[in-house]
Design a protein around this nucleic acid. Structure first.
Length: 580
RNA sequence: GGGCAAUUAGCUCAGUUGGAUAGAGCGUCGGCCUCCGGAGCCGAAGGUCGGGCGUUCGAGCCGCCCAUUGCCCA
């Protein structure tokens, strides 16, 4: 959990007085307890109560202090409440009450909440930003699919998650680099080269049976045909040379396709790191030497072993087989060794959940390298693809929706991303193509985008009518006094906290849930309070409030990599299905 | 056989250092457009938080056992 000091630091981002409600209450409470010569309890919590009727924020301090002070929790709470009331010179609190077993509940005055609008207006879409990361150098590695075929929908989930986590970390003051690790060395790559070579010869009329263990997607056939066109005499070359050409061409083409798919999904990596370059540059040996210097490797049966049992693994692992071949583990160690040598304070890897057994080993390796705790592995559970409630087979040969590109073309990047980022990464996800594609209320992404578009529609109408939003400090804000006005202010005030905790937990779904709630508050407001016909002064105040909602929605959607359209007909276009 | 996760409303899911009557969307049923976009709003019904035991003032959350499901490893 964040120390309280961070909250103050975050507020310094804005000019003037810190308007954070939670912090304001905490400061007042601390001061009050101090005057009463009571300590601040270690487990003191200040949080919004579950039910609105209990006020804006609730503190459990009296319950924690009652025991040691030998007083009844409620009596002590009353005494603290009286102390707080006596010192609320600025009248920021509307109500200070004691409830239940001894909760201390406060409700802020409307004027306090109106101050939030100044924060949002001043920050614009930068609202919610902070420096809690203090420029920490963080690397996020994600997708990193083997370049043996196009990305599938599971990769899409990892891509959306990694990209959004990077956005969250940037927003909270981290120095972030996004990386894709290209596994272009090793056995899978040999199989890829062999697969293309085999198809090429088959296409040339040679009667060769399929291999048991090779890539058989149609894209292999396409690549083989192209390679043959490009190298007409390839069949006359020495086989090793021909296979090498097949391999290089295949990797280049598949990788280009992967990059295109990610671009279409609005995911961008800063660094594409080649495993082969790691091997070629001798980095593997460097890492081995590092481990050997720490006495953590040994030779046995002609193989090189790493003593992972010293770090909690259930057995030691091989780094280099007796045949001289390197294991995946070996290059992964070298890769992470390299990451830390590049100066990252913290490294985040996003992996498919089927690799979970690999996590302790990798953590052990990082510890062995002297960087315990610097690696965070996020596991992403499987995505099951449905169409009208029925499972779509995911095998390479099955239906036409197996690739990420097809799915994105069918439902649109916004809808796909929002769904991916609406769920905790460690729970399996159902992705129903028809549901996600639907432009209706069962689709949360449109609900949120519509809220944003609704505000902009009103702002445009207001402009035509010559009504401008009020200035953030205007006296007319006093008109924002209904429960719906204040509810929206409260929601807006939460946003920086939401961003901070989402970044800390590396959990973008916290943001998407928040956005749904803010959108709901906006839609409710829209139905209950007419803006443009409410009289010039009221209209101006309400326009300011709603434009702050739009700003915050846009800031939040940006963290998810989802567009914030000003008109809904602008989003429907990229959801139009491709031919067929 | 061992390990990692998951289990919350009919469905899909939130609920993070243990706190007040467990929430949302969809679906179902019933309401709301002479007015800023109805892609919306309001209301109702719907729960043994998989089961059991324990820890304590208090457990969806922590511990142990069991069940089911998924994955990893031998």
């Amino acid at each position: 959990m964040l120390p309280a000091g961070n909250l103050i630091g975050r507020c310094s981002f804005f000019e003037g007085e810190c308007m954070k409600a939670k912090q304001y209450f905490e400061d007042a409470l601390r001061a009050g307890l101090n005057r009463m010569e009571l300590p601040w309890p270690d487990k003191a919590l200040i949080e919004p109560p579950r039910e609105r009727k209990f006020g804006d924020y609730s503190a459990n301090a009296a319950m924690l202090l009652a025991g040691p002070a030998k007083k009844k929790p409620r009596d002590l709470a009353e005494a603290i409440a009286a102390e707080l009331r006596a010192h609320d010179a600025e009248g920021q609190f509307e109500r200070i009450e004691v409830a239940g077993p001894g909760f201390l509940n406060v409700t802020f005055a409307p004027g306090f909440w109106h101050g939030i609008l100044a924060d949002v207006s001043a920050a614009g879409t930068g609202y919610g930003a902070s420096d809690q990361g203090h420029g920490e150098h963080v690397q996020v590695e994600y997708v990193s699919a083997n370049p043996t075929g196009p990305l599938h929908i599971g990769h899409g989930r990892g891509a959306a998650l990694g990209d959004s986590i990077a956005r969250l970390l940037k927003k909270t003051g981290h120095d972030v680099s996004c990386e894709y690790y290209i596994n272009d060395a090793g056995r899978q790559m040999r199989i890829l080269g062999d697969s293309v070579w085999l198809r090429l010869r088959q296409l040339a009329g040679q009667d060769i049976p399929d291999l048991e263990d090779f890539y058989r997607g149609d894209y292999i056939k396409d690549i083989a045909a192209r390679v043959h066109r490009q190298y007409p005499d390839i069949l006359n070359m020495p086989e090793s040379q021909a296979i090498d050409i097949c391999f290089r061409e295949a990797v280049d083409e598949i990788l280009a396709g992967i990059k295109q798919d990610l671009r279409d999904f609005r995911v961008g990596h800063d660094v594409w790191f080649s495993e082969k370059s790691l091997v070629d540059a001798g980095r593997i040996d460097e890492a081995f030497a590092d481990l050997a210097a720490r006495g953590l490797t040994f030779e046995q049966d002609g193989a090189l072993w790493f003593k992972t049992t010293e770090f909690g693994d259930d057995k030691d692992r091989v780094l280099r087989k007796s045949s001289g071949e390197l294991t995946y583990f070996a290059s992964d160690i070298a890769y992470h060794h390299d990451k830390f040598k590049r100066g990252f304070d913290r490294v985040i890897d996003i992996w498919g959940a089927d690799h979970h057994g690999y996590v302790p080993r990798m953590q052990g390796a990082v510890t062995a390298l002297g960087r315990q705790g610097a690696l965070t592995v996020i596991l992403v559970q499987l995505v099951s693809l449905l169409k009208d409630g029925e499972q779509v087979a995911m095998s390479t040969r099955a239906g036409k929706f197996e690739t990420l590109a097809d799915v994105v073309a069918y439902v649109g990047a916004d809808a796909a991303r929002f769904l991916f980022l609406s769920r905790k990464s460690d729970s399996p996800l159902e992705f129903d193509l028809e549901l996600v594609r639907r432009k209706s209320m069962d689709n949360p992404v449109y609900y949120v985008q519509y809220a944003h578009a609704r505000v902009h529609s009103m702002l445009a109408k207001a402009k035509d009518a010559g009504i401008a939003p009020a200035a953030s400090g205007a006296a007319s804000l006093a008109h924002l006094s209904t429960p719906e006005d204040l509810e929206i202010c409260r929601q807006l005030e939460r946003f920086p906290d939401v961003v901070a905790s989402a970044a800390q937990a590396l959990a973008p779904h916290v943001v998407s849930h928040y956005l749904s709630e803010l959108a709901a508050a906006l839609h409710k407001y829209y139905t209950q309070h007419h803006v443009l016909s409410a009289g010039a002064e009221v209209a101006a105040a309400r326009l300011l409030l709603l434009s702050c909602v739009a700003t915050t929605l846009a800031a939040g959607l940006d963290l998810l990599g989802v567009s914030a359209p000003e008109r809904m007909d602008q989003v429907s276009e990229d959801a139009v299905p491709t031919a067929g």
